[in-house]
Each structure stands twice: as structure tokens, then as C-alpha cells.
Design a protein around this nucleic acid. Structure first.
Lengths: 249, 249
DNA sequence: CGGGTGGTTGACGCTAGTCAAGTAGCGTGG
DNA sequence: CCACGCTACTTGACTAGCGTCAACCACCCG
């Protein structure tokens, strides 16, 4: 049943490129899918109060882990991509922890016991999960470095480099992709203000480095100029390119 | 041999309280110690170019993972405590990655192959390492939230709450401890300026919340007032109190 | 006891946040 | 299918918090 749901989800995928990638990412985790409940999040939906006793695997889309530090102050501490594993019990005890996707996303929701059964019986799967968690750790580390050392323009460039590396599709001389987050969410992810993010986008557009069509569509016209805007670009590209294919081989 | 070194290291520990704690933290990892090379870092020493092919376990002290984002810009992305495991291959590809301790610290350096042998043959050990890495992940997550949402005063309070929870020893009405980092390193950890950190310390001292004796010694005279300065205090205390004893049971 | 480094403190400037007004994309209903 | 309205986004003017720079101080070493 869940297999059917998964296949139909694949059929409804927006682009062939993305479809194949997500698929490859999930291959080593397929065992888990049979034990999973299928959860679909529409645009801008939150999966709050992550029931403990469950493990979540991202199947499709880009998902933010967010928390509410004070009233009105939201922080997106990390972005999750297909194949990422979330164990609520092992997260930091932050108030209002939730998973949220701006665009649509899909999860597998698995009971902790089923998860433990499958992973202990299959050493390969266990290895995959272990590497996955470490990759998420490395991304957190990168994000701390970016948030600490970069100014607003560099942060926005870092985000575009990350998104472009993950989601970008070459079209002509440009690299195009759909932004996985709204301006406000980008701001929460970069610890900036939405106004500042907007201003920086406008500046990049004025410099002919990016082009905007609609709210979510971005074309990077000059990738090397974008990468040059941020001292961590090289590291980010390595992290996000290496993070994906490492698991499919 | 390494056992003797370890025991003598324990004997030279500064305080009984810390000694016991560190010991308890390391118990589940004892198997690894027999295969380890013992590395001692003096004050303000760096362990750069972490040879790949090795795994490091923190045995004593507090250690920062630092990187150099641009020339002259150093970031400490995380603090490591006894029992924490560092696998250089699984870190983010950041330039100039190194481990540094301000005060003295000790490591076990283990070849990856020996580490794999021990951990695959002992399920208990493997579980411990898995939980350890997850705890480090949760701390990174907390740190992202803190760096994103807090202002300078709140950040410094967060740091003192973290250090106090980890290292603090009640003495009379106060809680005293040695700061594990210099002002400059605290600044790099909190993504602040050393001047700003110093100013904030002075403000807390003027408000009679803390008392300073020497450069590294801190007494928190009013713990609840300190905790009230930062909206994440409760979460930080839970994270750092829970992170430790969970492994000793 | 003196030099040096690390820490403290003040004055000033810049970056990014705040507030407010205006615009445009996108979904809804006619 | 088009018009309308809501909300997200954009953009400008202003402000505040933190970084920068410079001078001074104090701890710690020899």
C-alpha cells in the first residue's frame, strides 16, 4: 500500500531530474518504507508535536526543522533533504520544535520499534543511517560557521549556492531551480530579516547574477560570480555534492 | 601503558568533582582506550590537520572545533566534552579545521580500523557512540538556535549557563567554575567580538550576577537571574544535564 | 619586578533591523 | 477565463546594536 502511494508520489514529481535524485537517495532506505506510514505535507504545512515513539524519513521535498525561541521569534536550524532521518527524542529540547515545508513534501513515519527491528537486522541499512546522521551533523556545523562568519550578502549567496547545488538544473547558460523556502523562511534560516533578504536578492538581480521569475523561481545567470560572493561557497558545494551520491554507490 | 597514563591523568585532575564526572562519561568507551594513542594538549594548543584514518575521543577538558572561514576570521563551531567522538572524515569540509583547547585537555587517538573492529564487535559500545554523535548533533542544533535568535547579552548568558551546568561546583550560595575558553575564544564561539564579550561580562558583574577572580575563574552569585537573561536557558540546562548521565546508566 | 599578552573601556561608524508605504504574484470566486 | 483581493514581497527612511579602533589596565610569566 505504501509502495503504491510512493509510486504515485513519484509520478506526480515536478521534474524528471529531481525524481531520479530523490529515488537514488532513498534506495538504501527502501526496507523502511514497507513499515512506514506515508505522510504528505502540502505547501507551508507544519508537522508539529512530533510524536515521540516515531522516526521520520524525508521522502520528497525540502523540509525545515524550526523552533520558536521566544514568542514571534522563529528559527529554522536546518534544512532536510530526501533520505534524511529525524528522531525526535534525539533533537535538542527546544520549544516548539516542528518540521515545516514551504512547498509540498513527503515523509515516512515509522514507529521506533519497527525502525529498531529493521535497522538491527540489516547492517547495510544501519551503516546508511549512521552516515546520514553524520552528514546532517556536518551540515549543521557548516551552518554554524556560515551564520557566525558571514554578513547578509554572503549568507544569501551561501543559501543560493546550497539550493542551486541541491536542486539546480542547467538550462542554457543558467542554473534554474525553485526556491524551497519563502522569503520569511529564508530569513529564519539565515538569521536575517525578511526585508534584508529581499534587498539582497534585488541587489543580486541588479548585478545580473540572478534572475527572478515568479516568487519561487530563480535562475542563476553567473554561477561563478555568485560563488565568489561567499567565502564558504567551495565548502558548501563539496558538502552538498558529496552528501548525496555517497549514499547511492 | 595507556591505562597507566590515563590513571595518572586522573590523579592530576584539578578537582574531585570533575574527575568523577569525566570518569563516568568515559566508562562505556573504555574498550577503545586499550587501542588508543594518548594525546595531551597543553594550554591553548591546537591539534590541526586531523589525520584522516584516525578517530579522536575527548578524555579530559573542554575542546573547541574551530575553522578559519577567511583569513583572520576564526569560528568555533562546537565545544566538545569528555566522551565526545570526532571522526575527521565526517566533519564538514571547512578550511583549517582543528581541535583547540584553551586549558589543558586529553584525547585518545585511535586508528579508524581499530575503532571499527572494536565497535562492530561490541554492540553496547556502538550504541554509546551512536547516542554520543546524536547528542553532539543536538548541541549543534541548540547552538544554531542560540546564534540565530539571541542578542549579545543573551548569548553570553547562554554560554555561562552551558559552562556552569557542565563545570559548575556549588560553593556557598554561588556556583563557581573555570572558564574553558579565553575571551577571544568565547567571542569566536558566540560569533561576537571579544570587546563585546568583555563589556557583557562587566555588565553582569556590575549587576552582581557574577563575580570574577582572575581571568578564568567565575562565580555565579545569582543563578536564576543569569538564567533569566536568556530565553534558551531552560533548554540549555536540560540538554547539558541530560547529555551526560544518559550515558552512564 | 618589568615586559608582554590578554583583557577592559570609551568614542565612533556601519550593518542590518524596524517601521511604514507601496507593489505584484497567486489563489479564489464570479 | 478574468477580475478581485489577500498576502507575500519590495523598497525607502530611520534607528540601534554591535563591530572597529585606540588607549589603557592587570594578570602572569620569566
Amino acid at each position: 500500500m505504501s509502495m503504491m502511494a510512493y509510486n504515485s508520489a513519484l509520478r506526480s514529481g515536478e521534474r524528471a531530474g529531481e525524481r531520479v535524485r530523490a529515488d537514488a537517495e532513498l534506495m538504501p532506505l527502501m526496507r523502511l518504507q514497507g513499515r512506514a506510514q506515508f505522510v504528505r505535507l502540502g505547501s507551508c504545512c507544519a508537522l508539529a508535536s512530533l510524536g515521540s515513539g516515531f522516526v521520520y524519513v524525508v521522502a520528497k521535498g525540502v523540509v525545515g526543522i524550526e523552533c520558536a525561541v521566544a514568542s514571534g521569534v522563529r528559527v529554522i536550524t536546518a534544512l532536510l533533504y530526501p533520505g534524511d532521518v529525524v528522531v525526535p527524542e534525539l533533537q535538542a529540547p527546544l520549544p516548539g520544535l516542528a518540521l515545516r515545508s514551504q512547498r509540498s513534501a513527503e515523509f515516512w513515519k515509522i514507529t521506533t520499534t519497527a525502525f529498531a527491528e529493521e535497522s538491527t537486522s540489516d547492517n547495510q541499512l544501519w551503516q546508511t543511517i549512521f552516515l546520514r546522521l553524520n552528514a546532517q551533523n556536518a551540515r549543521q556545523q557548516m551552518h554554524v560557521a556560515a551564520m557566525s562568519a558571514l554578513n547578509s550578502e554572503e549568507k544569501v549567496a551561501a543559501f543560493l549556492v546550497e539550493s542551486g547545488t541541491r536542486l539546480g538544473i542547467p538550462s542554457g547558460r543558467s542554473i534554474s531551480f525553485e526556491l524551497p523556502l519563502s522569503r520569511y523562511s529564508i530569513a529564519d534560516y539565515l538569521s536575517l530579516n525578511a526585508d534584508t533578504v529581499s534587498r539582497t536578492f534585488s541587489a543580486l538581480a541588479a548585478a545580473k547574477i540572478i534572475e527572478r521569475r515568479g516568487r519561487f523561481h530563480i535562475s542563476v545567470r553567473d554561477w561563478s560570480a555568485l560563488a565568489a560572493k561567499c567565502p564558504l561557497s567551495e565548502a558548501i558545494i563539496r558538502l552538498h555534492e558529496a552528501g548525496k551520491p555517497a549514499l547511492t554507490r
